[in-house]
Nucleic acid binder design. Structure first.
Length: 419
RNA sequence: GGUGGGGUUCCCGAGUGGCUAAAGGGAGCAGACUGUAAAUCUGCCGGCGUAGCCUUCGGAGGUUCGAAUCCUCCCCCCACCA
């Protein structure tokens, strides 16, 4: 244990420790973590806190923000944040939590995603205090000998003992050799940037700990590991992920963020407050209490959640506005404030004749349905209306004479006007 | 390397020459009821201006009037053997 004589230092440590461990699942190894933090404070030497993101999709969602917001807390405490954009690891694909090999991305896709990632990161983090590194920086320099050397640091047995691999083996789903390299690559990132702490979701525990092993093998002081809970997606079952489509993207319009928040199962309300918002400990206690009272409709609290989430990623006041709009559109079944609009000329561009609009085409070509067949199904299911009048005739055609509002399902709108 | 068993639509899984765009379940979408929650019920659930066509049963060829189904080669998974 470090000697910690000054009460000021001790107070600072307690303050930091409290913030850092809040919401975390594991802090490994605990004693070592405390010592390292104390040393950092005493010597005024910030920790290098790392988290990596593979730019496999263009959207950062609330699931990612669980880790990013933890980074932000470290940042606010004066520590150094190092974001790794995994341009090379993305080409391999992290097998964590995967039931099948990820499909490889092209370099162009990766670079495009990496670009949009960065702007999204800085909706939470302070750009000027963040170091962003692409891991291609070191991987593209490695020779085959270097790679083989890296591969000697880990045994097959250790890699295969992971749950993800065990499950895949048992179910007869292929595992490619290159996927075994993922933890090694992630670990080597920690060597390259000399990470002192790495953050990740609990499913990352193996990779994070592998980082320690690799660092030691390369004579770098092993990093500390901090794991955060996995945020459950909108379906209430699976982890939030882009590929499952059960996510709230931080770049989404206010209305979407709010609407999606409203669609989560009630049991997840507290969870979202805790993991995805900056609600204070006192606020969380109040929320928990309110949710346990039978006379409180969880919907009201869910609305607070939606409002909060919108405010985090949109200008102030957007949350309230989104809530009001939601109430207007869904509770009172009125029209939204603003909706996508197409003029006669724009319709003509879509090859729709404003004088004789074939409803099926209008729905499909304006993107309110994926295909004509889909549009037809929606019409015959009674999910389509024009100016509030339900249309059930699949062959319906009409002339665009006045401003008309097309509604498809509960939440898709399109306004079309003659000029 | 050998022998045997497998690979079916988003997922699981039935189907072993035409009746098969392919049973059933799950997921999803829409409708009713609601709080865009849950539960329940109903409909849809490859594409095309709905008419027959086109695409789809690991991949590529072939047999046949006709193939998810038969043959050949290849790829992948599993079991046992080496």
């Amino acid at each position: 244990m470090e000697e910690f004589d000054s009460p000021d230092l001790l107070k600072e440590f307690k303050h930091q420790w409290d913030i850092i461990t809040r919401g975390a699942v594991d802090v490994l190894p605990e004693g070592e973590f405390e010592d390292k933090l104390k040393k950092s404070i005493k010597e005024n030497q910030p920790l290098r806190v790392k988290q990596g993101f593979d730019p496999t999709s263009p959207d950062i969602h609330l699931g990612h923000t669980v880790g990013i917001r933890k980074l932000k807390q470290f940042q606010d405490l004066g520590h150094k944040i190092v974001l790794i954009v995994g341009d090379y690891t993305a080409l391999v694909g992290d097998p964590s939590g995967q039931s099948a090999t990820r499909k490889p991305l092209t370099h162009d896709e990766v670079m495009y995603n990496a670009e949009t990632y960065q702007t999204q990161f800085f909706k939470v983090l302070d750009r000027s205090k963040t170091e962003v590194r692409f891991n291609g920086e070191w991987f593209k320099e490695m020779s085959f000998t270097d790679i083989m050397h890296l591969a000697t640091k880990f045994t097959v047995a250790r890699l295969l003992e992971r749950d993800d691999f065990t499950k895949r083996m048992r179910r007869g789903i292929p595992i490619s050799i290159h996927e075994l390299f993922y933890p090694l690559m992630q670990g080597y990132d920690s060597v390259a940037i000399k990470a002192s702490v790495e953050i990740g979701a609990t499913e990352q525990t193996f990779n994070l700990l592998a980082g320690r092993t690799i660092q030691e093998a390369y004579n770098v002081e092993p990093q500390l590991v901090l794991t955060m809970p996995i945020l459950i997606g909108l379906d209430g079952e699976m982890k939030m992920s882009k590929s499952l489509g059960n996510y709230i993207g931080i770049d989404e319009p206010a209305r979407e963020i709010f609407g999606k928040a409203m669609s989560i199962p009630d049991e997840l309300i507290y969870n979202y407050f805790e993991l995805a918002t900056d609600a204070t400990a006192e606020r969380l206690v109040k929320i928990k209490q309110a949710l346990s009272q039978p006379d409180v409709n969880p919907m009201t609290i869910k609305k607070q959640l939606g409002e909060k989430l919108v405010d985090m990623y949109h200008p102030n006041g957007a949350g309230k506005q989104a809530r009001e709009e939601f109430e207007r559109v869904f509770s009172k079944k009125q029209l939204p404030d603003d909706m996508p609009t197409k003029t006669a000329a724009q319709l003509a561009d879509l090859e729709i004749d404003p004088k004789k609009i074939y409803l099926v085409h209008l729905i499909a070509k304006s993107g309110l349905a994926k295909s004509n067949s889909e549009a037809r199904k929606l019409i015959s299911a009674g999910g389509v209306s024009l100016n509030g009048d339900k249309v059930t005739d699949v062959d319906y055609e009409f002339e665009l004479a006045e401003e008309t509002v097309l509604k498809v399902g509960k939440r898709r709108f399109l306004k079309i006007c003659p000029n």
